[in-house]
Design a protein around this nucleic acid. Structure first.
Lengths: 336, 336
DNA sequence: CTGAAAGCGCTTACAG
DNA sequence: CTGAAAGCGCTTACAG
């Protein structure tokens, strides 16, 4: 018969170490007011009993879950990975842990994607997704938005890179190579809107005619493929395509191949995000690095400062994106 | 000044609804022993006060976190996404929630990747990663392993697809197309070992000479590229490559291109996993579907049955993988 | 620096 | 069907 062995509690540790329960609690929270001898005794007892503090009890008694909830779009869109990394680096030193919730995965279960987090009593929310009306954010809940979004959350901090500038960088890179017929395959959402804006600005400044297709709000390989096919059909003279993110650029690469165009000789392609995908041997994609890890670090900073000073004015941090030049862009084969 | 408004508790709800606290608790847990009138009153009060039960308090009082911990390798390797989906579908109806922990992300923080879960007092563990010695799994903790692994966990259930059969399927597909010089690019871990085994068996049965390269334990685009380059160098007569997963196959595609080989005319490539990557327009990769969503459902089933009957014998479920034929495999251009 | 007490917000028997 | 009581395992003041 399997008997569920009761896990050790703080009482067991105290008894084993020959101290009071409060002293164990102090050791757990790294209080300096504990003699070295007793600390050692407690630590030894913890090790020996394989004691792990109960998060539930600690949260309930301490009045704080020490957890921040991160809402991401979808596990498939990998931009969040580096963001999480930066966030975690910044938060763990403060003793905060991270809980991740993916909207698409939970969409059929909870009416409000925040329900779970609210029951957990998260200390703060990180929104790495487009905010929607179905998210009922409690008043006074600290919120940091990661990445540029269409909807603004009143009172929330923002950490993002400057997508307008990035869109300009991408476009000017192509212009600098000698391209004149540069098209943009756009998607939905705040980041895409700014990238489009940067593209339009750079084209205008260079006296070039913009060509934009927006196959869908989605920014997937599929929509990138569809958009680029439409584009090449309607504007066969196009020599360069700027796709709103790396996944779409992957589709653009496939469309070029299916139209019999060589990249970069016949068609240059540039993406956005500097995702792991862009770095593969198969793609070798020129892209714009949106510095997601650094954005994660900025989110952590904003979070910690807001937790200590709840009343301060919201701040918006914008990092400067960087061009990452690889093999999918080059001078156009022939001037048109 | 921002004042943290105290969240409503069960007491507030009871008072607002004009009932006792216990009655509220009963309503929350959907007890049938509650009159309709009172239930409605409670539900209304909950809505009005925007009450959310405290997970910490519920877990502490109830002696159960109602959470299962899922350990995955790495967010970048997307095979877990469908697994989670299947798992969640099976678990939420039982009132269990899922917490995900990614090993690489947490590796620099915790010595034991299970630490967080043990503090949360998860009811069970799902291991969607290769178990390691650093994971100290408490005795009597229900464990289900997802996918084939090198190391066996005594007493754990297993849900996986038959990777040996899948390796055979992939190889026999190539043999059936007329290939004779079929190489395998292998990786580390239990699944890869079985896929290799299936390849070796099929080659032996067909009287063909196996050629295996194992560039690394890692199964990434990078290692797939490196392994295929080595392979094509050493065995230029190779007409087909079976890569141990889709990421490696992506690298194989890049290697073929860099060696000036056309796929599938000069070189057929088959992957494994039927990941979203394989379905892209750019890759159109022939692959083996390992049915990850169904594996997730099987994991859920095993978990629920073990939770109700802790003493039962461990079971191993193996699903039958399926060939997904796309554009990267064809008959060899010329018989060698 | 250390110990006894109260309490966090629930659930769980246990009377009525 | 309903209400008062105990207790889950911690943290937090508060005396000593």
């Amino acid at each position: 018969m399997v008997r569920r062995t009761r896990r050790a509690t703080i009482y067991d540790v105290a008894e084993a170490a020959g101290v009071s329960k409060s002293l164990v609690s102090l050791v757990l929270r790294d209080s300096p007011h504990v003699s070295e001898a007793r600390r050692t005794a407690v630590l030894e007892a913890i090790e020996r009993l394989d004691y792990r503090p109960s998060q539930a009890a600690a949260a309930l008694a301490g009045g704080s879950s020490r957890t921040v909830g991160v809402v991401i779009d979808d596990y498939t869109n990998l931009w969040f990975v580096e963001l999480l990394r930066g966030l975690q680096d910044g938060l763990t030193s403060a003793g905060l842990r991270i809980a991740v919730s993916d909207r698409t995965l939970n969409s059929h279960i909870e009416s409000d994607p925040l329900d779970g987090f609210l029951s957990t009593r998260v200390e703060a929310l990180v929104l790495a997704t487009e905010p929607t009306a179905s998210m009922r954010i409690p008043p006074n809940m600290p919120v940091v938005v990661a990445g540029n979004r269409e909807t603004e959350i009143p009172g929330a901090d923002l950490a993002a890179s400057d997508d307008r500038l990035g869109g300009r960088l991408a476009t000017e890179h192509l212009i600098g190579l000698g391209h004149r017929h540069i098209a943009h395959v756009a998607g939905g959402g705040g980041a895409s809107a700014q990238r489009l804006d940067g593209y339009l600005g750079a084209m205008r400044d260079a006296g070039l005619a913009p060509v934009v297709v927006t196959p869908s709000r989605a920014t997937t390989e599929e929509t990138g493929y569809a958009g680029t096919m439409t584009l090449l059909e309607a504007h066969p003279g196009t020599t360069a395509v700027f796709a709103s993110n790396d996944s779409m650029a992957m589709g653009a690469l496939a469309a070029a191949r299916d139209r019999g165009l060589e990249v970069p000789a016949d068609l240059s392609v540039i993406g956005y995000d500097a995702s792991p995908l862009a770095a593969t041997h198969l793609m070798q994609l020129t892209t714009i690095d949106s510095l997601n890890r650094e954005i994660g670090a900025e989110v952590a900073t904003a979070l910690l400062s807001r937790l200590t000073e709840p009343g301060r004015e919201p701040v918006a941090t914008r990092l400067i994106p960087q061009l990452v030049e690889r093999s999918t862009t080059a001078a156009p084969r022939r001037r048109l």
